[in-house]
Design a protein around this nucleic acid. Sequence first.
RNA 1: GCGCCCGUAGCUCAGUGGAUAGAGCGCUCGCCUCCGGAGCGAGAGGUCGCAAGUUCGAAUCUUGCCGGGCGCGCCA
Length: 549
Amino acid sequence: MTPLRDLRTAVEDASAALRSDEAKQPGALPAVERPKRDGFGDYSTNAAMLLAPSVGKPPREIAERLGEELSNRLGDSLVRFEVAGPGFLNLFLADDWHATALAEVLAAGDAFGAGGADPAERILVEFVSANPTGPVVAASGRHAAFGDALARILAHHGHEVAREYYLNDAGSQIRKLGESVRARARGEAVPEGGYEGDYVLDIANALPNAAEEDPDVLAQAAVALMYERIKVTLLRFGVHFDRFFSEKTLYEGDPTPVQRAYAELERHGHVYRSDGALWLRTTAFGDDKDRVLERSNGEPTYFTSDVAYLEDKRERGFQRQIDVFGADHHGYVARLKAAMEALGGDPSTLEILVMQFVHLVERGERAAMSKRRGIFNTLDELIDDIGVDAARFFMLQRSHDTTVDLDLDLAREQTNENPVYYVQYAHARIASVLARAGEARVAEALAAVAAGAASEGTTALEPAERALIKKLIAFPDEVAEAAERRAPHRIAAYALELAQDFTAFYRDCRVVGAEPASVESFRIALSVAAQRTIAQALGLLGVSAPTSM
RNA sequence: GCGCCCGUAGCUCAGUGGAUAGAGCGCUCGCCUCCGGAGCGAGAGGUCGCAAGUUCGAAUCUUGCCGGGCGCGCCA
């Protein structure tokens, strides 16, 4: 339980008590949130307005009674309440309530904000999955940062999460890579639709006999090289995968995973032959046309692999699959969800998050990109340029479904212009303050606050202290929202707000040297809580929290 | 043509039914006897693309337009 959830429960109970008097329908759950203006109290609720239709009285009248009901339940914690506007109930909470809230934050430690998932699920997050036909491009960095942060957030929320990279190491693009390598080894132009980047020549030089070797053999060797390079880049970016799932293995074994998927589809009666090809009737599940599984020449399609991979993940017992796709693949959503249903699965357990593009902008101009033409910025180059922390933070600041212009000039700045440095600076500054107080004094302060001693001081809390505490206790809700809505950018926004609230507190409230000692203790403890929570928020984004900069 | 995503401050973007729509950057003005100035404060800046509808209440939900991105293959 958290202070905020206790408050929310009290509001719900009080609402229910009013409702049972005169009506029974349980309406929408009332919202308990921080109002926009300080004058509207510490928290406010719209419960009375939601209650109005079923109770049949004016919202303001209901709010008045709700306030009285809450007063009884919360006792001294509720200093006063006000009915405002169309029927909002504004709550003004005591300093003691805030002090208790801080103690609870500190008591939670690393588990603060954790474990809210209900029900907890086994979730597989598949992301990046860029073809191993070249280095990881900067744009894939957005997928990497997003998928990894989402996995971290889901795990903190209480889910069991696995990260997977689907490695396209079979198929015609791979063959093209092999042909391109051989061509470069021979000093010839790459074939139509081949890969032209300089890295292809590097591969050719790294492989003996590249000029004479069979393209398919070259392709596998090239993929192996690229695969290693991709792994190194991603690790450097702070992204670890539990598994790189090889597409090739879908065609290996007896029966092969592809054959098992076919069998499952046939068992449900959704495949048929036409024009010499094998089709899946995806139109039965909302797709706009049926899809070919096996071409008339006997070759499988890209879709076939996807379906088999889908089935394989189901067989491995994941209750939910989250796939992070690029915007250029959004056309696959309908057919994959249809395939899930055709396999006998629940399409709602397959979530496909479509990432919009990220453009790198320098001096106001977008950089052009094309992997095949060899025109791109690699993720490694981006990291060299702006650093892992800035790259991740900038890519995570925005919702996945909006295209983003990443301003390199801004990201490069190691100044106040750059939000990630602002947040990290707040963390480092707290470390400095706490170091000044000394380890023993910090331990003493934490003990005092845990025991409730610091809260018994007669000194009223400063507005900045109250604001910072309220920001801190919002963290569990932020994690829950970020997890449930698959929205890491909310954590980025939260981290920035928390850093701002700490900075305001630091400006207004002397920490080390504050008197009496109970106030100093309280502020030291508050600083510790802020530091830990900033570190937690940054940790969920995979951004470091330095103690000095 | 059809489908998906987006249209909010000069720029990049938050805000999935509530009160006077926010942040960062940029711009203007101000602040270094002070625990980290890599900082802080104040200010200017908006027909939330347009138009109807739903309701006590709409940036948010519905529909239709307009503008931008992407996709629509027995390619991957």
